[in-house]
Simulated assay, not measured.
Amino acid sequence: MEKQQLSEIGQRLRKRRQELGLTREKMSELADIGTGYYGQLEVGTSQMSIDTLIKLSRSMHLPMEYILFGTGYEPGDSSAVLDLLQRCTPRELKLAEEILKLFLMRIE
């Protein structure tokens, strides 16, 4: 992979981490990878394995296609919410429904 591609991947990772309001340390903990290694990914000085790509995709709730190529995801796109819900267990879906109901009642 070319240096420019690694840099672009790193920029997308950093942007998403910041959108989530997480530190590098917390993001690496959620993805179950080393903090130093995650930092290298963000600055574009290291390549990632398929295993790491999967971990980051799951923990950041991003399509792998977006991490690698910058396509298939737009922030604010409702399909991101649907994607999150599709990954939930039945118990998590029930909890998400209850939280959403409480949130919507608060707004009205």
Rank of each mutant, 00 (worst) to 15 (best):
M1R: 07
M1W: 00
K3G: 06
K3A: 08
K3S: 08
Q5W: 02
Q5L: 08
Q5I: 05
L6N: 08
I9Y: 00
G10Q: 04
G10I: 05
Q11E: 10
E19M: 13
L20P: 02
L20V: 12
G21Q: 08
T23G: 07
R24S: 11
E25I: 04
E25R: 06
E29G: 02
E29K: 15
D32A: 11
I33K: 00
T35S: 05
G36E: 07
Y37K: 14
Y37N: 09
Q40V: 09
L41E: 01
L41I: 07
E42A: 09
G44V: 01
T45G: 03
S49C: 02
S49F: 10
L53S: 03
L56H: 02
S57D: 07
S59H: 02
H61L: 15
L62N: 03
P63C: 03
F69S: 10
F69W: 10
G72P: 01
G72R: 11
E74S: 10
P75C: 07
D77P: 04
L82Q: 02
L82N: 03
D83I: 01
C88T: 00
T89D: 09
L93I: 02
A96C: 13
E97G: 02
E97M: 01
E97H: 09
E98Q: 08
L100N: 13
L102D: 13
F103I: 13
L104T: 04
